[in-house]
């Protein structure tokens, strides 16, 4: 997985696959995302092509971390396999998901 911060670190654009092997990179990314002064932060998933169960677990941990830090985490524009996984796991009931 690759990522790029935009909008003064209020949004991070993720690209490629999010799997177990990305856990260290993902942790560093979320530390930076939640460490800024933005109350609402967004993960742009439009270019994220694949997510496995470990990736879903990492997103759930990120949500817990965001809540503890008093941040609101928004997942934006999931598509393809990622969107189907979100639908099957009813992620829209756990996260704020924007189309």
């Amino acid at each position: 997985m690759q990522f790029q911060f935009v909008s003064n670190d209020a949004c991070v654009q993720m690209t490629g696959d999010l799997t177990f092997t990305d856990h260290a990179v993902f942790k560093a990314m979320t530390d930076r995302l939640f460490g800024g002064g933005n109350v609402s932060v967004t993960m742009d998933l439009a270019k994220l092509e694949f997510i496995d169960s470990a990736g879903l677990g990492m997103l759930l941990l990120a949500k817990d971390t965001a809540e503890k830090a008093g941040r609101k985490l928004v997942l934006r524009s999931p598509g393809g396999q990622v969107k189907r996984m979100f639908g099957l796991t009813k992620f829209d009931t756990l996260f704020a998901v924007e189309e």
Binding site: L56, G57, M58, L60, L61
Partner: peptide, 10 residues
Amino acid sequence: ILMLSKDSMS
């Protein structure tokens, strides 16, 4: 499965 994945990653 989601809970297991989350706990594993934790």
